[in-house]
């Protein structure tokens, strides 16, 4: 079939328009950047340094000059002959941050800064705790609980990674209804899931209040932070517990447990007892290095209700230490002090 000349011209005009659109589409589909995946020690160092430089949140709070760290450690990385020596140098570098949330994970080792509890007395003895719990305790939602003598309830919670269920908490607080008060022992609980903090803490308040603030990095600059966002604690709509509560703490209370203590100490019916918590007030995130190692670090600072950083830990209302002599006597003075306090009510 013969195509008329006018139609041919019109078609030619429209085909030029179409060609322009196609060039536009192809031009976008043709470009993207290269990524440096070299496993050269210098590149691994630069990648780790840059990840922390751009996303770590406590440089100013801890007074760390990260550029100076770069200059010092770039020189040392040049001398690394194998991955073990590189790991050692990088491990030393990240420990400058003195942050328990900063870790380097390899297949054969975990580089960590644990001085926040290693340099202090433990104030906790598991076998002593077992002697108070006995064998006839109950377990619900990761919490072990029983009524110890004198009508005092005792709960121990070893990890906020253990899920807390509403049904389990309903039962526990109903079980403790007639007690004078309860002791919640979170010593040696090094954190876990923040949603479990809220689930447990909301059982102890009668009103909604601001229990802290959170910020996050909005850019790679050391001071590129969002406005503080308030964190609220709202009362649970079901079963709540409003009698006296004593929270037992030690230096191993870290991360989510530190947040739990931060929130609970604001409640009028709660006393924090034991040693200062370990801290860990930065919400951690993870990333990877070109040689397969993983890095974790704090990226979102959290604050208490007075807008003070919680990274350095929370002071207890009542400082009580568990000495070696107490352990030899088989008396957990921290539990005993809390017990005596509740007996006086």
């Amino acid at each position: 079939m013969r195509v008329p000349y006018d139609l041919k011209r019109k078609n030619y005009y429209h085909m030029k328009q179409t060609a322009f659109l196609l060039i536009l589409i192809f031009s976008f589909s043709a470009c993207h950047e290269d990524v440096n995946e070299s496993t050269d020690p210098q590149n691994i160092f630069e990648t780790l340094w840059s990840i922390l430089d751009e996303k770590y949140c406590f440089f100013d709070a801890k007074g760390v000059d990260w550029d100076q760290v770069h200059d010092e450690y770039a020189f040392r990385v040049d001398t690394c002959k194998n991955s073990d020596s590189l790991l050692k140098v990088l491990g030393e570098m990240i420990c400058i941050l003195q942050d328990g949330h900063v870790n380097l994970y390899t297949a054969h080792d975990l580089i960590r800064y644990w001085k926040w509890f290693e340099d202090y007395d433990p104030n906790f003895d598991e076998s002593l705790q077992r002697s108070y719990l006995g064998t006839n305790y109950q377990i619900a939602s990761g919490l072990k609980y029983k009524i110890i003598g004198g009508n005092v309830g005792y709960i121990t919670y070893n990890s906020f990674s253990s899920a807390v269920s509403d049904a389990g908490l309903d039962y526990i607080f109903k079980y403790f209804d007639n007690c004078r008060g309860i002791i919640i022992d979170v010593r040696d609980n090094s954190g876990g899931d923040l949603s479990n903090v809220n689930k447990l803490a909301c059982r102890f308040t009668e009103k909604k209040f601001i229990c802290g603030y959170i910020r996050h990095k909005t850019g790679p600059g050391h001071n590129d932070f969002s406005e503080p966002y308030p964190i609220y604690l709202e009362p649970y709509e079901g079963k709540r517990y409003t009698k006296k509560v004593v929270i037992l703490t030690n230096r191993m209370c870290y991360s989510a447990t530190n947040t739990f203590v931060t929130v609970m100490r604001q409640l009028p019916n709660v006393i924090i007892m034991g040693d200062r918590t370990g801290g860990g007030g930065g919400f951690p995130i993870s990333s990877m290095l070109p040689n397969g190692w993983s890095v974790r670090f704090s990226s979102c600072p959290t604050y208490d209700e007075k807008y003070k950083l919680t990274e350095e830990g929370i002071e207890p209302d009542s400082t009580v230490y568990l000495t070696k002599r107490d352990i030899q006597r088989e008396v957990d003075v921290i539990i005993e002090t809390a017990y005596s306090l509740l007996q006086k009510i």
Binding site: L24, I25, F28, S195, H216, K217, T218, F283, I285, S299
Partner: peptide, 26 residues
Amino acid sequence: GSMAMVGLAFSPEYAESYYEIFYLSN
């Protein structure tokens, strides 16, 4: 061939956690 020109997209801020977006509702 198709090419997007304008629209809307979800994105967290630079190092914002999904916990903050979805659990704390920021």
